[in-house]
């Protein structure tokens, strides 16, 4: 979106020396903001942007809705024989896919931000170094929750009934969002390495697309050739999809959940410091 000049008349202003001097002298320096408070403030910044441009939420609502309808009605009959059965299998998968696709936009957002002068100000503040990034990812997590909620609610409207009820659905969503938070550090790193928002988008989807399709999100791996099947089994996205299905149905295995959390933690441990370093030097 480009900034259109508006017709607001600029209010007349004569610098009021007394007021400026008063403003300069009136604030004692407060104690430094805590790491958490700084990160949450940056999360709030993300929310304000959504408030000013609510259209941003369209990516995270329309696309998942399209995915659910398309997979249920277009492919459902062909792959599983009936739409109802397929919905049971596919809904947690679509939840995983849609939220993970949304993480690419976190990288795009970081890249876009870097072109703005305000980043220099943020980097010159006496705050916890990773705060701008952590905060923006916290803000993005809200988008992930919105996307996930839309999918689950639409599924329920179409007849999906998670075996473990609301608790199961919430647990599955929470697990997906935690994993997405870890994964989004990969894309923020990419966002700081590549030159343009478009390059980040392309590279991001080039990575996330095959990983998602080579998982058990859409198809039962038993039907695949042996080599592919082996990959699908170790693909963390398969394990995430399996764990989410399990949580929805109340049959989750602790090992799967543990692996998902471990992968999310590992991605964060490797890529968060890397992102922070790159951000500092960008």
């Amino acid at each position: 979106m480009s900034a259109k000049p508006t017709t607001h008349a600029e209010p007349a202003f004569a610098a009021d020396e007394a007021a400026v001097r008063q403003a300069l002298s009136s604030t004692p320096r407060p104690p430094k903001a805590s790491a958490l408070s700084a990160a949450l403030t940056f999360g709030w910044r993300g929310m304000l942007k959504v408030k000013h441009v609510p259209e941003q939420l369209l990516d995270v609502t329309i696309t998942p809705v399209m995915f659910v309808l398309m997979f249920t009605y277009l492919f459902g009959g062909a792959v599983a024989g009936s739409t109802g059965e397929y919905l049971d299998y596919i809904l947690p998968g679509i939840l995983v896919m849609s939220v993970l696709f949304t993480t690419v936009y976190s990288g795009v957002a970081v890249n876009t931000d870097l072109t703005k002068g305000v980043v220099d100000r943020f980097r010159s503040l006496p705050i916890w170094r990773p705060a701008p990034l952590v905060g923006s990812l916290l803000g993005d997590s809200v988008r992930y929750v919105v996307a996930g909620t839309v999918i689950i609610v639409l599924g329920v409207i179409l007849g999906y009934r998670p075996g473990a009820g609301v608790v199961g659905a919430v647990a599955a969503l929470a697990l997906v969002v935690v994993f997405a938070f870890g994964l989004s550090w990969v894309f923020t790193t990419l966002g700081l390495l590549l030159r343009s928002p478009n390059a980040v988008m392309n590279a991001g989807f080039m990575g996330i697309f095959p990983l998602t399709f080579l998982s058990n999100v859409f198809v039962d791996p038993a039907t695949l050739p042996a080599a592919l099947e082996a990959f699908v089994h170790v693909n963390p996205i398969s394990i995430l999809a399996t764990a989410s299905r399990g949580l929805m149905e109340g049959t989750a295995e602790a090992a799967d959940i543990a692996i998902v959390l471990a992968v999310a933690a590992a991605l964060t441990i490797v890529f968060a410091p890397l992102t922070t370093r790159l951000y500092r030097k960008a």
Binding site: R29, A33, T41, K116, G117, V118, R121, S124
Partner: peptide, 27 residues
């Protein structure tokens, strides 16, 4: 620092910009 490119956030209002910085500085 007041940078050469305006170091304020174009996508926020003036009030939000200043409040944001106040919070980040510990107010």
């Amino acid at each position: 620092l007041t940078g050469q490119l305006a170091s304020v956030d174009e996508d926020l209002t003036g009030r939000e910009n200043l409040t944001l910085l106040g919070r980040l500085l510990g107010l």
